[in-house]
């Protein structure tokens, strides 16, 4: 049944206002987190904050140089596991029509996405930390890499599926093999989207803390060795934030600000990459 026009107009207004309210409510936490982090973290930021190592309790100053380098190395390790596996599985799912097996792989991939990251950490702990006899950067990288795989797989598959079939057919009709078609036509058309997916996956693992607690463990000193415990931004934040020292707490906020900025920049760059070619 059709309501009267004035009534529908009124209803339309009311619902629009409701939706706007919901949008504002949803944005309040985001902006208050950003603002709060900035407000509390900014006093800690100085050039030496980025270049110095942590100082012992009681001494002022000190920085997060080791944590920055550690997070960088962990991301590199994680990407060298997550990207190739995710890419290959994504290509397989999108281009090789795996039928029933594909459904199973997709389901398992979704399950993997849903596994709490701390469980992944425990898994790597028993797989690598116990067998290698200690916490290590390698174990941390593997844990983060495992978390990356399902995200990269999903985005790769979806981006490849967005490439029109007509392009694959054009390539095959020219006498290209399936491999040539995927490498020369399909992947190049999907690469901005795939890169975006990879960067979003990196942004996600950059802030992961739980799986690092008992893999990378953290380190107060400078270390880039794969077989030794390594510092990471989230771990540093964790340790400093729960400490009783004012000084460390401020540094925790500073490190949080750096981490949030890093993730934000990664997200923005990812969008830009996608929209540059994303007709």
């Amino acid at each position: 049944m059709l309501h009267s026009y004035p009534f529908r107009k009124l209803l339309n207004r009311a619902v629009t206002v409701l939706m706007l309210l919901a949008v504002v409510l949803a944005l309040i936490p985001l902006f208050s987190i950003l603002w709060h982090t900035f407000e509390r973290g900014w006093p800690a930021i100085s050039p030496t904050f980025f270049t110095h190592l942590p100082k012992p309790v009681g001494e002022t100053g000190g920085g997060i140089a080791n944590a920055l380098a550690g997070t960088g190395l962990l991301i590199l390790l994680a990407s060298s596991i997550g990207v190739p596996f995710g890419l290959l599985v994504g290509i397989y799912l999108a281009e090789f029509n795996p039928g029933g097996l594909g459904t199973v792989v997709r389901f398992l991939n979704d399950v993997l996405t849903g596994i709490p990251s701390i469980v992944t950490g425990m898994f790597v702990y028993s797989l690598l930390v116990l067998t290698m006899g200690g916490f290590s950067a390698l174990a941390g990288g593997v844990a983060l890499g495992l978390i990356m795989i399902p995200t990269v797989t999903r985005s790769t598959e979806e981006m490849l599926k967005m490439v029109p079939t007509s392009l694959r057919e054009a390539s095959l009709a020219l006498g290209a093999t399936k491999t040539q078609t995927i490498l020369r036509v399909v992947l190049p058309a999907a690469i901005p989207g795939i890169l975006t997916g990879i960067m979003l996956a990196v942004a996600r693992v950059a802030g992961e803390t739980a799986p690092l607690l008992f893999t990378a463990f953290g380190n107060r000193f400078w270390s880039l060795r794969l077989d030794q415990p390594i510092a990471a931004l989230p771990l540093q934040i964790f340790t400093y934030a729960i400490s009783p020292y004012r000084d460390w707490q401020t540094q925790a906020w500073g490190a949080a600000l750096v981490l949030v900025t890093l993730v934000l920049v990664l997200n923005i760059v990812a969008r830009l990459v996608f929209h540059r070619d994303g007709r």
């Binding site: 029109p164 007509s166 392009l167 057919e169 054009a170 390539s171 095959l172 009709a173 020219l174 006498g175 290209a176 093999t177 036509v185 190049p188 058309a189 007709r279």
Partner: peptide, 20 residues
């Protein structure tokens, strides 16, 4: 089939140049 397709050219209904 790949070698066959190199001997037979095809033009499709919708223009489909490679966009990249």
């Amino acid at each position: 089939p790949v070698s066959i397709r190199r001997r037979i050219g095809m033009v499709f209904q919708k223009p489909n140049p490679f966009p990249t």
